[in-house]
Design a protein around this nucleic acid. Structure first.
Lengths: 110, 110
DNA sequence: TTCATATATATTGACTCTCGATATATTGAG
DNA sequence: CTCAATATATCGAGAGTCAATATATATGAA
């Protein structure tokens, strides 16, 4: 059994949400925020003070790849897509969250 | 549907674990750390730099009540027990974590 | 046309939580 | 007697989130 400090997993929650949303194709930041709110019926919210730093971090770590939209278009939009490493991380995080939930409710339901 | 920022729930994970462990009777800090590790087969760990500040915070908020052991005993141990407010919070947090998990995996399994 | 709203990215400073390290002291076993 | 386990506590560093702020373009209605 891998040991974790509680925070190791839970603090990266926004990361996995973003990676998950990118499963269905490349998206830009604002779109990710809208889609997350929509898909969760408003339950999850990504504030912009969180969103953009997380995107930059994920890109720096090679989990997503960003590309600015064609220059002809005035409005600047950066599309992000999952890399192989990102896909691998997502899969791994899913498993970890499952374990976490099991363990958490094992304690909670005492 | 209540809206949450992701962090609101996840960052208080240690709190709910402690509250849950106190369901089965009053305990002192060190005991809580041992029991959590034991019950989760080592999955969860409470470092002491986290544990004691959290206990103090919970007490300050009236969710737990601490009492030093009888003075005849040299070793100082502070036992904590759940207050009514703590019990209420625990119940509430259980529900919230269920919702959270549902919503999270709804996004993850796209 | 113009003006408000929606789209879009980004940074800042404050805040909170967690962590590892460190400090201190007692107790029990060998 | 001594070492490991028990027991509480605080510190500073680091990370993540948030609301607020800044900037700029696009769109639709009046």
């Amino acid at each position: 059994m891998k040991k974790i400090n509680v925070n190791e997993l839970t603090k990266n929650c926004n990361e996995i949400l973003i990676l998950a949303l990118l499963q269905s194709g490349s998206k830009h930041g604002y779109q990710l925020a809208m889609e997350l709110e929509e898909k969760s019926n408003g339950y999850f919210r990504l504030t912009y003070g969180t969103l953009y730093p997380v995107l930059h971090k994920l890109e720096k770590e090679g989990l997503i790849k960003g590309e600015w939209e064609a220059e002809e278009i005035q409005r600047k939009r950066k599309h992000y897509l999952l890399t192989t490493a990102g896909r691998r991380r997502l899969k791994n995080q899913k498993t970890e969250w499952h374990t976490f939930h099991e363990q958490l409710f094992n304690i909670l339901e005492d």
